[in-house]
Design a protein around this nucleic acid. Structure first.
Lengths: 158, 158
DNA sequence: CAGTATCCTCGAGGATACTG
DNA sequence: CAGTATCCTCGAGGATACTG
């Protein structure tokens, strides 16, 4: 399988990975959520080479995750801002941050403070229906019958 | 910058990306959360070639995200299961799924049902401190003073 | 500044065969 | 089954110079 084949997968996780599950897209998403908008700043903060950065921004525009916005007419200058589709990727970046903070050594340069309650924010996943906190064990994974046949489910008990 | 340089980044998002932010690790995490444990099944369900799969499993073991567990003595057979460190990556996979379900076309093969309330689960991010739902706009990003100087923050107003 | 143009490297990953 | 061994391709990305 090559990366591109993921686009046609029945699994929405795989399709998401194909769109934004690469190193540079994730790094750029982090930057956008930190408020960075301009080419030079994106280049400096991520160390992505101009060539690669240019291509990645173009791809993310085509996917509708970001859009160009002109902020100067003379000379014409564009910056890049997240769309709603892009802002909806916040949980992905946030989850990566929370995991790194907990499990990986190193400085924690960024702290998130919840504006309304004033506390440092730690994300908790809850169920939209009932409001309870949810862990993997609290959830039943239901695979549509039309897809179950495609999957190899061999496994031991326990 | 190359991918490996991310490991020494001051940003825990970058460090997480270096560890698990590649296509095949994310695909394998999806499989593990679906309950797949054995080499052959991982191979069939992800289409990752045996060579690459072998290397990736080894790397994930070294990072402590999964561990080998012997399930048969004659012949000796191993399967791979998530550690706590690995299970803590659930929010990442879940966030990718939720985003794909909302924004990408295609079948939604998997449904998550919250065991205790019986409803189909949609994840909501809440603040651990106060319990309120949180969006990017509700959060203030505080960059440690010792890191602020490293960042290029040029931007327009508004 | 915000990019484009060129050239090149190199290693991840694909394909296939093989083994205890 | 659960991998290892080999060989090869190819394109992502690095480096650098250039431009409106």
């Amino acid at each position: 399988m090559s990366r591109n084949d993921l686009a046609s997968s029945a699994c929405s996780v795989a399709r998401s990975i194909e769109k934004v599950g690469d190193t540079w897209s994730l790094m750029l998403l982090r930057e956008f959520f930190l408020g960075t908008r301009r080419f030079e700043a994106l280049h400096k903060n991520t160390s992505i080479s101009p060539h690669v950065l240019s291509g990645r921004l173009k791809a993310m525009c085509e996917e509708g995750v970001i859009e160009k916005r002109q902020y100067s007419e003379h000379p014409p200058r564009d910056e890049y801002v997240l769309t709603q589709k892009g802002r909806d990727l916040w949980p992905v970046v946030l989850a990566l941050k929370a995991w790194g903070d907990r499990w990986l050594d190193g400085p924690q340069a960024v702290t998130l403070r919840h504006r309304s309650c004033g506390q440092v924010m730690q994300p908790v996943i809850t169920c939209q229906a009932c409001g309870q906190a949810v862990t993997p064990r609290d959830v039943v994974t239901e695979i549509g019958e039309e897809f179950a046949g495609e999957r190899c489910t061999c496994r031991s008990e326990g």
